[in-house]
Design a binder for these strands. Structure first.
Length: 551
RNA sequence: GCGCCCGUAGCUCAGUCGGAUAGAGCGAUAGCCUCCUAAGCUGUAGGCCACAGGUUCGAUUCCUGUCGGGCGCACCA
């Protein structure tokens, strides 16, 4: 926000001149009530004690200095216990259009990330079956967060961790193998905990069609082959589902590769050297209790196999080795008990707590017309991400996922998501963009095209309160986006867009653009709409939602 | 039993580092197309911010406790 930055600079200079230091608790923010001006500062309240002056008196001194310091400021008022309510001039707000025009597709981008390397790991579902709706939420969130972080100046890498080394994978191979035996009429017994989904049978049938001799192989080799084939087949499906959902992963990282390269053993040595690993009851333990966990954790089980945790530590070690300053993991909320031990691991690797973040995504409740759809293994009921995206479209699904904060439960109602109402705000926002485009298109048909770069003076006809409101909103965009990045909270983007869309629809209904009184007013209003449309388009792009030019 | 998350309008949810009179949509209800896209706009009703204490100039926000809901508490992943 230009206004915020400018005011911050002015106030900081004034406070410094008074021989005082800028307190951390000072805030500058748009007040709830518009009559309180454009920005409210609590600096006098926070600083009063240090200055040894009552808040209102300090506020009065600051106000005087502020009025003299910046000609763009129209008014400074002292309110309540000592707030400074600052109002900027209409000219100042009109310049917002010029800033949008200059920045174009980059409008809203900031440099708060300062080029720091960040990694976002998300989805990372075991390749034992297709992605379901819950994975979709994590996928949308991770993908959007990556875009938001990039826009805020981070150097972001997106990654999917493939758990291809554990017990689940052996079980997958076994399940396919047994199905293959079944399909070939060979004797077999199904254990309790094998994978039962129909896709397992499909994979087995597919393998037999290509190689009927499969079932004649020795058991170990057959199961190995089944595992490899099944995993690749399922991973291909997962990758395609993610592509269809417009979700990007730049790196596909194999757990098995860590084990094979000895990275896990190397990590063990590291922990042992730090005195954090010990043997007990035939197992290798990690003393996470000294680092905030509530019990110690096993790394290598007494049967010699590794725990998932062991390779996950090695994986995170690998991440930091690749130079990431910030590592963000997105997990299902049912894994929250795993957080303390991972934090302990990161600490053991010598990293600061702020270099590691976990976003826990709450579960998704899939509904149809208010009725809960059972997430059973039974096929056909839109339980997979693929089916849901096919049914409601990527735009609506993404927007729905991204308009809740991640730690609240999400009711995903297929009927509502298909509806064109405010229950499904994606249309509301997209419609705002389409409307802007429609007006600009119609203007062009009449031969009216505002210059790509407006002249400041040509914006003077923008005097209505609604127009200044729109400009203030657009000016706020960079702040909103950087807050979303720093808070790892993409839902701020969605809410911001709904607010902008609301202001635009309201303006559209109330103020004629093409039928304005003078040609100068028409051009100025077109330029305003174009700027608002640009802001909406940039925001939608961060959500990975299309900004249609017509609806 | 212990730990984490949640509790804000009838419903679904926002509310940033503690700020001024508590926010939106849906639903309810009353209106608005001779005029740039009605997938829209304008009004009205609707609140003990779960409850009780504490911290301070000020608490929906921070702390403690209680109640209610969800999820964890593996040599599973």
């Amino acid at each position: 926000m230009r206004a915020r930055q400018q005011l911050l600079a002015s106030l900081q200079a004034i406070v410094k001149d008074m021989g005082l230091s800028w307190p951390e608790k000072a805030t500058l923010e748009p007040p709830r009530d518009k009559s309180f001006g454009d920005l409210a500062a609590n600096i006098a309240l926070v600083l009063a004690k240090d200055a040894g002056v009552p808040p209102r008196e300090l506020a009065s001194r600051l106000a005087g200095a502020l009025r003299d310091s910046d000609p763009a400021i129209d008014a400074v008022e002292i309110a309540g216990p000592g707030f400074l309510n600052v109002t900027y001039s209409p000219d100042f707000w009109r310049e917002t259009v010029l800033h949008v025009e200059a920045a174009g597709e980059r409008y809203g981008a900031t440099t708060v990330g300062a080029g720091r390397k960040a990694q976002v790991e998300y989805v990372s579902a075991n390749p034992t079956g297709p992605l379901h709706i819950g994975h979709g939420r994590g996928a949308a969130l991770g993908d959007c967060l990556a875009r938001v972080l990039r826009f805020a100046g981070y150097d972001v890498t997106t990654e999917y961790y493939i758990n291809d080394a554990g017990r689940q994978m052996r079980l997958l191979g076994l399940s396919v193998w047994l199905r293959a035996l079944e399909l070939s009429g060979r004797p077999f017994t199904m254990p309790e905990d094998f994978y039962r989904g129909d896709y397992i049978k499909d994979i087995a049938a597919e393998m037999l069609a290509k190689d009927p001799g499969l079932v004649d192989l020795p058991e170990a080799e057959g199961q190995d082959r089944c595992f490899e084939y099944a995993m690749n087949s399922i991973m291909d499906g997962i990758k395609q589902d993610l592509i269809d959902f417009r979700v990007e992963h730049q790196v596909w990282f194999s757990e098995l590769s860590l084990v094979r390269e000895g990275a896990v053993e190397k990590t063990f040595e590291r922990l042992k050297a730090a005195g954090l690993a010990f043997e007990q009851d035939g197992a290798l333990w990690f003393r996470t209790t000294t680092l905030g966990d509530d019990k110690d954790r096993v790394l290598r089980k007494s049967d010699g196999t590794l725990t998932y945790f062991a390779s996950d530590i090695a994986y995170h070690d690998n991440k930091y080795d690749r130079g990431f300053d910030l590592v963000v993991d997105i997990w299902g909320a049912d894994h929250h008990g795993y957080v303390p031990r991972m934090r302990a691991a990161v600490a053991a690797l010598g990293k600061r707590p702020e270099q590691f973040d976990v976003i826990l995504v709450q579960l998704v409740n899939l509904l149809q017309g208010g009725e809960q759809i059972a997430m059973s293994t039974r096929a056909g009921q839109f339980e997979t991400l693929h089916d849901v995206v096919k049914e409601v479209g990527a735009d609506a699904a993404r927007f729905m996922f991204l308009s809740r904060k991640s730690d609240s439960h999400l009711d995903f109602d297929l009927e509502l998501v298909k509806q064109r109402s405010m229950d499904n705000p994606v249309y509301y926002v997209q419609y705002a963009h389409a409307r802007v485009c429609a007006v600009l298109r119609k203007a062009a048909e009449r031969g009216i095209v505002p210059p790509a770069r407006m002249d400041a003076a040509a914006l003077a006809p923008l005097t209505l309160p609604e127009e200044l409101d729109l400009l203030r909103l657009v000016d706020r965009m960079p702040d909103t986006l950087s807050a979303a990045a720093e808070g790892l909270a993409p839902h701020h983007v969605s809410f911001y867009l709904m607010e902008v869309a609301g202001a635009l629809h309201s303006y559209y209904a109330k103020v004629p653009v093409l039928n304005a009184d003078t040609p100068e007013t028409i051009v100025a209003r077109l330029a305003l709409l174009r700027a608002v449309g640009r802001a909406v388009a940039n925001g939608l792009n961060l959500l990975g939602v299309e900004a249609p030019v017509a609806m």
